Simulated scan of single mutants.
Amino acid sequence: MARFDLPLDRLRTYRSASEEPEDFDAFWSKTLSEARTHRLDARYEPVASGLATVEVYDVTFAGFGGHPVKGWFVLPAGTDRPLPVVVEFLGYGGGRGLPHTHLLWASAGFAHFVMDTRGQGSGWATGDTPDPVGSAPAFPGFMTRGIEDPFTYYYRRLFTDAVRAVEAARAHPLVDAARTAVTGVSQGGGITLAVAGLVRDLVAVAPDVPFLCDFPRATTLTDRDPYREIGNYLKMHRGRVDQVHRTLAYFDGVHFAARATAPALFSTGLEDLTCPPSTVFAAFNAYAHEEKAIEVYDFNDHEGGDTFQQAAQLRWLPARLRAGR
């Protein structure tokens, strides 16, 4: 696929037409306050992973509604003092998988907390966290589950899980809570932006080819899933466009980015049909912290920089983690 979106000079100034709900902050304050009425109950069980360079723990904590959410916690072997932590969120359809697939950040000398994704984990990596909340009729996938109302939408539960994951990671005695970074690819990048807007004391944010940004443009610009799930839902449920876009506005990465308080490193691929570059730049251009950068991969689709972006993160993130706030 050749380039289909705006030219790069226009991308650098592009602004989303997504309208922020007047009660955006109140909605999320209420949501998180309700979640915190449940004990976090973060539990870490050692795992015999067969790996010599890291120590692995099977994590369970209380997410949205007090529902149990799984994760992995990975430390450099022999850790005996609190370390900065990287909290990672996962891409669409995937789950936490197996521990040996999560070695990067512990190998760099940091604690690494990987959050499982409720209800997902049957696409490209296995998951272990069910989503016990039902919804009205939805198009297969997760984008339209509960989309009739922001209080029932799937991503309200998932974004709340993500904030609680940061709290669970910080609760571990071998984590230096003052030095916390968040990262993720695609859906994980969108979750990363949500956490950046909801958690005020992070030291770094690294959304890689982020999904869930600039819904008004994304849902009409690309016909590739997962955004197309929304179009397919509206194809059947005629007349609900305004209602759906009202719900999605509470979950748009653009509005979370406008509340971010930590330095950020983004990435985008200029031929990305899954998360079009204009939708990524919409969040990047709205991002509130003055220290921000974006890696642009000119001829790449949704893989973006892939391992090259990991290398960029390894150059950028450690100095911020070690310095703290």
Rank of each mutant, 00 (worst) to 15 (best):
W28S: 06
G71M: 05
T222K: 01
G239V: 07
T31L: 06
P132D: 05
R322D: 10
E22C: 00
H245V: 00
A319K: 14
R246H: 15
P132V: 10
R12Q: 14
K30F: 00
P21F: 15
G66N: 02
V175H: 04
H302S: 07
Y233K: 03
P277T: 14
G269T: 09
A177H: 08
F256Q: 01
A196G: 06
P263E: 15
W72C: 03
T160L: 12
G231P: 02
E229D: 15
G78V: 12
K70M: 03
W124M: 08
P318I: 08
R246L: 02
S107L: 09
A2T: 07
F64V: 06
W316L: 09
T268S: 14
I294C: 02
R240C: 04
H245E: 12
L8G: 04
F113M: 14
A323C: 05
V280T: 14
T307N: 14
R3T: 11
E167F: 01
C275N: 15
E45T: 13
G304F: 11
E271C: 13
R81W: 14
V85N: 08
G134L: 14
Y287M: 00
Y297M: 03
E271H: 11
I147L: 07
L51E: 10
D116A: 03
L270P: 00
R12Y: 12
G134K: 07
V175Y: 06
G197N: 07
E271W: 06
T37M: 05
A311F: 08
D306E: 13
C275W: 15
